[in-house]
Write a protein that binds this DNA or RNA. Sequence first.
DNA 1: AATTTCGACAACCGCACCCGG
DNA 2: TCCGGGTGCGGTTGTCGAAAT
Length: 201
Amino acid sequence: MGRSPCCEKGHTNKGAWTRQEDELLIAYIRVHGEGCWRSLPKAAGLLRCGKSCRLRWINYLRPDVKRGNFTDEEDQLIIKLHSLLGNKWSIIATRLPGRTDNEIKNHWNTHIKRKLLSRGIDPLTHGPIHEQAAIHSISTAVLREKHQELNLELHISLPSTHLDSPPTLHKITRQVICFYCSLGLPNTKDCTCQGSSRRTI
DNA sequence: AATTTCGACAACCGCACCCGG
DNA sequence: TCCGGGTGCGGTTGTCGAAAT
């Protein structure tokens, strides 16, 4: 026996949201705040699944959602973050205020992918397309070089070390932080820092 | 003008993970 | 420690409008 479905599919609406549904959802969240998505639809008088409500709110109705075209700066940032993080859209979204993971994912699939391909860049590896055959043999030196460039652009840096006075073992262990924390994203699901990891890798 | 094709994006689905009992 | 509910994430699909034929 599996877990119960998140909603009773026979009694829920599907497809595009109507203006009335949007208003009901906005009104409910204004009063009660976000959370308890499972019980929200019933409480708000919506014939929708909780997941659907959450998605609608996060991607479309939230007041801080930025609508409209992506700027070149945003595009460049997405490309750089994607080269480093891969399809971690939610993490990438945290670096683009007002943009949602779904929006970035769609923008990537429809615009940026094509843009990179037209420039002869493989959107998966971020390397030249004509070197596809050698993708799996990209040297670590090249990767390190790429990441150094990213570090400069994104102000990402390794934990500071004291070159003039070599750190003790104790100091070293205390300074170990994961990549996500170095991005300024502590306690993300992928954080691997000691004592703060929420998910094992 | 009618039909087909394509691009953009909203929404759905299934899975993985977290957390509390 | 285990189990199940709730939530979030990423991949995929569906739909609609614009462009092309």
